[in-house]
Design a binder for these strands. Sequence first.
RNA 1: GGUCCCGUGGUGUAGCCUGGCCAAACACGCGGCCCUGUCAAGGCCGAGAACGCCGGUUCGAAUCCGGUCGGGACCGCCA
Length: 584
Amino acid sequence: MSGFSAPHCGSLRASDEGRELELYGWVARRRDHGGLIFIDLRDRWGAIQVVFNPAHAPQAHTNASDLRSEYVVRVEGKVARRRPGAENPRMPTGEVEVVASDLEVISVAKTPPFAIEDDVEADEATRLKYRYLDIRRPKLTHNLELRHRVVQAIHRYMDAHEFMEVETPMLLKGTPEGSRDFIVPSRLHPGEFFALPQSPQQLKQLLMVAGIGRYYQIARCLRDEDLRADRVVEITQLDVEMAFCTEEDVFELIEGLWAKVWKDVLGIDIPTPFRRIDMRESLLKYGTDKPDLRFDLEIADVSDALRETGATVLRGALDAGGVVRCFAVPGGKDMSRRELDDLAVLARGAGAKGLAWAPGPLDRHLSEGEMAAIKSAAGAGADDIVLLVADRRRKAETVMGLLRREIARRRKLVRHGEWNFLWVYPMYLFEEDDLGNLTYGHHPFTSPWPEDMALLAERPYDVRARAYDCVLNGVEISGGSIRIHDRELQERVFGILGMDEERIGTQFGHLLDAFEYGVPPHGGIAAGIDRLMMAIVETDNIRDVVAFPKTQSHQDLMLGAPSSVDPKQLEELHIQVIPPEKPS
RNA sequence: GGUCCCGUGGUGUAGCCUGGCCAAACACGCGGCCCUGUCAAGGCCGAGAACGCCGGUUCGAAUCCGGUCGGGACCGCCA
């Protein structure tokens, strides 16, 4: 028996009428009328109704009464148009049905722990444990299929543009830079470790020195960091590097790529070029470096108007060198105190000292002029309410960004169906970390703007970077930069970042050495396929686009990983486990 | 590292604030019977949870308290 080349359940149409066939699939649903029995038979392509008629095939009908959900069966029969009035317009196969003449149960099934349907949401842990059942849900199957088609479109496009796919090693050298490495012990070198790639960053630059010129790879990258709704441990990224290019070449390539993907996969024409927004403008107006422009709610700075205010909660933050930011909620006058308190809880949860609103309890501490300035800056109308946060700049931005998204979600201000691509560009070479120290904004190989070179020593924070992020509907789908290709400049930047020569040598010596053997100017970009898919299927949960995701605590509930290993294996690796201290 | 939410039959919820009327309700699913055109099929009958786990308070706890485990959201972190 081979059903491999049998027709697909979900692919049958009116044009197949009269066809004698064998079908293989899972029983999605059974409707037993005593006389007639209907089943919906499901496979990856969809579902088709099969009808068992005792008058037509008594044995098949008898067998069919034993069918249960998720049994795997083989059906022999004939495709027939449904009788008039019995068509089901909600099913793509709804004009026809298969009249069964024979039925074979290939495999029986226990009752699944949750219904294999799109609208039934079971407990997350249960779904992850039985991921193979969750994937049977048409929605998830569809998402994985879309992902496949996106990746195929990417391959076609990159190949057409003469990019060469090159594989890079999984076992690399660890770096203290960036995110935490996953490390792999070396059996042959006791006490030494490989690191799994966070990205093939240095290797792709070395491929440019190697003269490959146009490189791409759909690569796995692993980062041992805490998870979020839009983060997984193992991400898949389209990694691209190109020689002799400028940012404009990268923009054009990637705009063309997304246009191609949208056209091929979704049949949608997206306009190019994408709009561009300065990183600082984005942080100010949208409170994030990945703004979602499917809704408005623009944030304004009202610090200057409130320098002398009597409202101490605002004044305190300003006197401490902070800022006051605000935005208007259209029609927000109707928000209840409870709703506003809810938002305040959210704001405090994100680290804000509090949330103010106007009109609100703060009114009596604000002068008429101050109130007018707030309303005007926020663009508030008579029915609107203005939300205000006073804090350190970065905190205020984070909180306002969070509130902006929350308000849009709650008040349904998101214009679904819009594809708002944009470039965040330029970005800035350096940022201040939590301790007030200077650190890199993108990564230490990013080239400064030539015009800003003079500022490197005096005002490093104002040095623009030749770095860019591509953002779609609030999701950062790719980011990259033009790299430094000059050994001296690279060393200078490392120096500004506070790295000493020895560290530069051990961490980046190979790259700097390579730059002495003829290096082309180069740059590139990496696109997160998981997040891209999130935007395409409009989900805010990355698990909807990954076949086998892990939990927030990095566990695979289906495989039971991680798990302990045989002591012999550890011995071979010269590894001793120190159990965590247990609080008594 | 931190904050918050959730954990009741196979699944989703109700009950928990205001302890006893809760060996716990409802829907779906599941099992049986009836039913020849349904497609969330329908009708009738039935089984199924001592309320994540441990401890405490109390005459009495699903309900209150502490801890713990698991899931999730967020801040930090993620170049």
